[in-house]
C-alpha cells in the first residue's frame, strides 16, 4: 500500500499550514507530545517492572496494570494526535526517512501487542494463573517496543 498520496495531502493540509506558519503553536503541541511520551513511558515502566517483580512488590500486579492501562490509552491518543500535527510540518521529508518508518512499524507493533495480547491477558486473568515466563516476556518485549518507538523517534532528527 503506497501512502505517498496521504503524505502529499498532509503536506498541503491546513495542519501543515498552521504548523509551518506558527512556530509557537508547533512548540506547544510538541510539549504535549513529550509530556504524553513521558506519561506513556511511565505507565509502561511501572506496569512492566511490576510484572518483573522489581518495583511496588507490595501491590498486586493486576492492580498496577489496571491502574496504568487507562493512562496508557490517554497518553497514546495524545501522542498520535500531536504526532500527526508535527508530522504535517515535514510530511514529505518524513515519507523518505527510513527511521520514521521504523518508528511507525514499532508503533503499529506496540498497539497490536497492547490491545490484542497484553491487555486481554493481563486484565482478564488472575496473574497467579498465568505462566510466569509469559509475564516476564510480555514485560521485556513491551519495554523493548516502546523504547524502540521513542528512541527511533529521536533518531529521526539525526538521520
Amino acid at each position: 500500500m503506497d501512502l505517498l498520496p496521504f503524505f502529499e495531502w498532509l503536506d498541503t493540509s491546513i495542519l501543515a499550514d498552521i504548523a509551518k506558519a506558527y512556530g509557537g503553536v508547533f512548540v506547544v503541541v510538541q510539549t504535549f507530545h513529550l509530556l504524553a511520551l513521558s506519561l506513556l513511558g511511565g505507565t509502561v515502566l511501572v506496569g512492566d517492572l511490576r510484572l518483573l517483580g522489581v518495583v511496588m512488590k507490595d501491590v498486586p500486579s493486576q492492580v498496577v496494570i489496571q491502574n496504568t492501562q487507562k493512562w496508557f490509552s490517554v497518553a497514546l491518543v495524545i501522542l498520535i494526535l500531536s504526532g500527526l500535527f508535527q508530522a504535517a510540518a515535514v510530511a514529505m521529508k518524513l515519507y523518505y526517512n527510513e527511521m520514521f518508518w521504523a518508528k511507525m512499524t514499532g508503533l503499529a507493533a506496540g498497539i497490536v501487542f497492547v490491545y490484542a495480547i497484553r491487555r486481554p491477558l493481563l486484565l482478564r486473568f488472575d496473574h497467579d494463573t498465568i505462566n510466569p515466563w509469559a509475564l516476564r516476556l510480555i514485560a521485556v518485549s513491551s519495554m523493548t517496543i516502546w523504547f524502540t518507538v521513542a528512541a527511533s523517534g529521536r533518531w529521526i532528527g539525526f538521520s
Partner: peptide
C-alpha cells in the same frame, strides 16, 4: 482463551526481541 493468549505472547515477544 488464556492458553491462546499465552502462546501469542510467547511468539510475539520472541519476534519483537529478536527484531529489536
Amino acid at each position: 482463551s488464556k492458553n491462546v493468549l499465552e502462546k501469542a505472547a510467547f511468539v510475539f515477544a520472541t519476534v519483537v526481541i529478536v527484531s529489536a
